[in-house]
Amino acid sequence: MTDASREPASPDQGSTYRLVVVNAGISDPSSTKLLADRVAQRVGAVAGEHGHRVAVTVLDLRELLPEMSQAVSSQLFGPKFTAAIEALRQADGIVASAPVYKAGPSGLFDTFFQVLDNDLLIGKPVVLAATAGTARHALVVDEQMRSMFAFLRTLVVPTSLFASTEDWQDRSLGSRIDRAALELVLLMESGFEKKLRGDGWSSYQHEFGSAGGTELGIDLGSDLMKLATGGALPPRKKG
């Protein structure tokens, strides 16, 4: 189902983009959250230069921890989880930021995205960011996080952000953040996600009630529906 209730993001007259920051940092403040906030702040600034506004929603995954066990064990989403899913469903852009533990993004970060509907984030522009205590984890974003977001059919910006301890005193981190922010704004401006949902949504796999409970379209003309109503399956392909 396409979401017709959303304002079209037209670059001509300026749009308000909904940016959702997903922060898996545990302490407050944490370097993971700091990195995500810097990206969000720069996205707001770049969008402003382009004549747009950005409304930021921050999801601190730590606050979902009490609801995480039931989400994992029983696919039951509590009120905070439900609100987080709704924010992501409406997001025009996402910043997802994780601390690296034991050579991978934290379990909290992975688990959160693993329990979402497969089609919740299709086509959404995403900036991926990670923090670590050592530069030896630098490829975690591209080698581990990017593959999960590829599975989720998101559009991850070309520049991945990674900050280990030494990066915080290096001005080049700031220029990479600027780059990623610009990439995200350009992708949001392109309206790619909305056009995809308008024209190509049915070509992705959906389950009844997926996409955060909005995927309620039923194709009554499918082969299975014909079978359900006393028909036969199409003949098997030979060979």
Partner: peptide, 25 residues
Amino acid sequence: IRTPEIAEQAAYYGDGFFANNIFWP
């Protein structure tokens, strides 16, 4: 509880439809 084709088949034949109504919202 989540398969439209099964609901469609039940409706087509005029059979009953049962939702287990346990474990999920």
